[in-house]
């Protein structure tokens, strides 16, 4: 088990980061090349001011009518995404690893806060799961892959919570935590999780179209 632990925290961690960064760059390059060849329109109409105008409105909670008429979803999504990003970056246990391995460190979250944020992520995943099963329009769109992605996202948080609180079997859970985190990283470039990187571009483009050509709001 120790060997496996060292593999997961050593080589596999490197591979995960490489796949995540390399894969994301590759996806971007592919799309950019294709866009240059086939979608000159995107470059013609892209407008920094209107792109930012749209992005900002959609990054502010309840900044769009869509968010206003879906209040629960809005609250959950914002909390979910904020916690999803901040918790792994600033949780004490992770920062310590950076300190030990690379001698760099930064601000850490109080443990109780990190705990709460982890629970928010887990609860949000359950909410999303409920939507996928119960809301007819979301259910109609849901594919098996959507459940897998939800699982990929939830597992590192569930296992992290488990390991931190040293519930029975926490040693195994720690390894599951590490591996599932690495799987999530590696999945980003190749699944719908890539939406995190595409958001500014899709939003920015429609914002540019609405602002520059249509002279209308898009929120």
């Amino acid at each position: 088990m120790h060997n496996f632990y060292y593999f997961a925290t050593g080589p596999l961690a490197w591979i995960a980061f490489l796949v995540f960064i390399g894969g994301s760059i590759w996806r971007f390059r592919e799309l950019l090349e294709l866009a240059k060849r086939k979608d000159s329109i995107v470059f013609e109409y892209m407008d920094t001011k209107f792109a930012l105008r749209s992005i900002v409105h959609w990054l502010i909670p309840f900044g769009s009518r869509s968010m206003k008429i879906n209040p629960t979803m809005t609250v959950v999504t914002f909390l979910f995404h904020i916690c999803l990003f901040l918790t792994p970056l600033f949780v004490f246990g992770h920062v310590i690893l950076w300190k030990e391995n690379f001698n760099i460190s930064w601000f850490t979250l109080p443990n109780a806060v990190a705990d709460l944020m982890t629970l928010i992520v887990i609860a949000s995943c359950l909410f999303f799961l409920w939507r996928r099963i119960k809301l007819p329009d979301v259910k109609y769109l849901t594919t098996p892959l959507d459940f897998i992605i939800l699982f990929i996202v939830a597992t590192p948080f569930v296992s992290g919570f488990w390991a931190y609180h040293q519930f029975p079997g926490f040693a195994t859970m720690t390894i599951i935590h590490i591996i599932s985190g690495e799987i999530m990283l590696m999945a980003i470039p190749f699944t719908k999780l890539f939406h995190m990187f595409l958001f500014p571009f899709t939003r920015g483009y429609i914002g540019s179209e609405f602002g520059g050509v249509r002279m209308a709001k898009d929120w």
Partner: peptide, 11 residues
């Protein structure tokens, strides 16, 4: 991008 980015959220 339009087809790939859609996360099937139903918004």
């Amino acid at each position: 991008v339009y087809v790939d980015t859609c996360v099937h959220c139903g918004m």
